[in-house]
Every structure is written in structure tokens, then in C-alpha cells.
Amino acid sequence: MNRSLRDAVLADRNALRARHSGLFAADITHRLLVTGLIALLGGFALFAFWRLEFSFSRLGSGAAQIAHIVGLMFPPTPGTKLPIFLSALAETLAIALIGTLAAAIVAFPVGFLAAKNVVPNIFAHFAVRRFLDMIRGVDVLIWALIFINVVGLGPFAGILAIAVSDFGTFGKLFSEAIETADKRPVEGIVSTGGSHLHTIRFALVPEVFPVVASQVLYYFESNTRSATIIGIVGAGGIGMHLTEQIRMLEWDKVSFIILLILVAVGAIDWVSARLRHAVIGRSSVVV
């Protein structure tokens, strides 16, 4: 049935084309635009391949090397280092937790400063926002390197790196949460004679707290990932061992550490997603 319809249409194609010429005419400008865009992107890619010295021979030998390495990765074993790895993992989680909390505590008041509806002064608001943007423009690994210079190698540099880089993010997110908060509770407090501080304490804080808490939890989750990698530059945690084992070409230990990281991150994701739903769920009941 279907087939015969298709055949009939195909046989009648020229007549159809004559009757509905508008539908069959290709949109030339659109075609040209798309072709031009693809040519531009492709040309740029070719230039990048040339400039970055891509070569198929290197790709081939590297791929063979990868296959060899992956072969050596199985079965993953910690060797005699299981206690060391586990304590490094605990250190990683500690870096993430304390770094995130420190960032949140410092960023909470700054978020109010950066919110238009709390500080109406446009210059103050603009200055705080740009300052936060600048902090966010620097990757957490760069902060880690800098803090190693300041406080030396170890987890403490990692905590400071995560705290500073998250401070920028939290400041922005919190101020946005405060700006989008419902105005009516504030008006209610003002109408009963409350001061500016009263409106913040009894109208804005209860409103934004669930949002802020869920954002902090979300970033704790993402910071467990960051905390695993800042060890690569020497700022504590499991990343330090990962780099060490890769340098020593102990591939079965490398794969064990990667698995350990994946399991830990997965577990934290699961717990924090549940906590987040609990926090948001409660707030929706109150509101």
C-alpha cells in the first residue's frame, strides 16, 4: 500500500514539480549560507590540524599505544596501596566539602551586595559583578598552582583553590537568586514597619535559602570532580597518586584509581541529588 503510493508519487514527480513550483524551488540564499558556513568551519579545522601538527602516523602509533595501555589496565588492582588510596580519597572529599562550604559562607553576604534589589547603587553592583567575573575567569587548576606558592604543597592549597574559584560562581548565582526572589514578602515586612535589615532577614533569606542550599549541594557534587584533579598539580587528594602512578606506568593501579574516582563521584551525586530534592521539595510545600 505504502509502496504503491510512493511509486505513484515518484512517477508523477515532474507533473508535481510543475504544479507546485514554489515548494520545489531550493532556497538559494539559505543553501549558500549553509555551504559557506560549513566551508568556513572546515577550512578553519584544516588550518587547526596543520597548526597543531596533527599527523596520521602519530595518531596511528598513539592509538596502538592506547590499546596496549588499556590491555595493561585490566584487571585493576590497588597492589599494596589500598589504604593510601582510600585515605587520599577521603582527603579529596574533605577538600571538596570544606572548600565548597567556605566559598558559600563568604559568598552569601557578597551575593546580597551584588543583587540589584538589595544594593540599588549601580556602581557598587557593577564593580562587585565584574570582580566576581574575573575570579570565575581563572580555572581552579590555576588557583591551585597559585595557592601552592602561597601555602605550600598539600590539601590546604586545594581547599583554598576550590574556595576561591567557587566564591566567584556562588557570588553570581546567589545574587541572581536574590534578584529573582518574590517581592511581596519584602513589601509585607516593610508595611509592618520593618527596617532594611529586617526585610533581608525575614523576607529574602527564607526565600532564597532553599535555592542557595541546593546550589551549594550541586557544587559540592561538581567539586568532588575538581578536587580529584587539583592533585595533578600537587594540591592534595587522589589526583596526586593518579599522576604518580601514570608517571610510573603502573597501569593497573591507574585504572583502579580511575574506578575509585568514578564510584566516589557517582555515590556523591546520588546522595546530593536526594538531598537536593528534599530541600527543594520542602521549600515548595512552605511556599
Partner: peptide, 16 residues
């Protein structure tokens, strides 16, 4: 960055 660490061993230093 973990992939990068592995690939540097396999492909050698450089942007690739």
C-alpha cells in the same frame, strides 16, 4: 585532564 595525562603518555607531548 585525566584523559590528557594518559594521552600525553601515548601520543607524546604537544597539542594533539
Amino acid at each position: 585532564i585525566v584523559f590528557a595525562l594518559l594521552f600525553v603518555v601515548a601520543f607524546g607531548l604537544g597539542p594533539m
